[in-house]
């Protein structure tokens, strides 16, 4: 009925309400990776799914406006490089991956800095990577139908 791409108004409204919460939840999981279950990978998947959610409801143009494929690709590589830099930072303390940045206070959010940074890097890598994978497969499928 509606000419715009994407699903019905109900789905769009619900998506508009939930997508931010899903993204926040993903970021929460990433930031608390050193305190509770979860971490970079799980959080990254949730972050990617929030963008995929947007794409499903509104069509790919809206999703690309938030996170376009070149940007996602750059962020993915940046995540990987950031992770390896964290590992190289350990060489300051004498070992690869050595815990150089101090441990912080246990059970507080800003503690175990190496783990925190690794989690952020992994979430960038996984989030953008999974988003790109799903987009690529979905777009390849569309080309066949045409």
């Amino acid at each position: 009925m509606n000419k715009e791409p994407g699903m019905t108004v109900i789905v769009k409204t619900v998506t508009r309400l939930t997508v931010g919460i899903i993204l926040m939840y993903g970021i929460y999981i990433v930031m608390h990776g050193h305190l509770s279950p979860g971490g970079g990978f799980a959080g990254g998947v949730i972050i990617a799914l929030s963008f995929v959610h947007l794409m499903l409801a509104y069509g790919k143009e809206v999703a690309f406006k938030k996170l376009s494929m070149p940007v996602a690709s750059v962020l993915e590589s940046m995540g990987a490089i950031l992770f390896i830099s964290v590992a190289f930072l350990g060489l300051v303390g004498g070992y690869f991956f050595f815990h150089t940045l101090g441990k912080g206070e246990p059970f507080s959010l800003l503690s175990a800095y190496m783990v925190l940074f690794s989690n952020i890097a992994i979430s960038l890598k996984v989030g953008c990577g999974l988003f790109l994978v799903l987009i690529t497969i979905a777009l390849a499928g569309k080309e066949i139908k045409k």
Binding site: F41, L130, V133, T136, I137, A140, G141, E143, I144
Partner: peptide
């Protein structure tokens, strides 16, 4: 699981290309 994700994604992508 992460490795499995990578393998599965690549396999599905290849399957789509082969179907093309």
């Amino acid at each position: 699981i992460v490795i499995g994700l990578a393998t599965t994604a690549l396999m599905v992508a290849l399957a789509v290309r082969i179907y093309e």
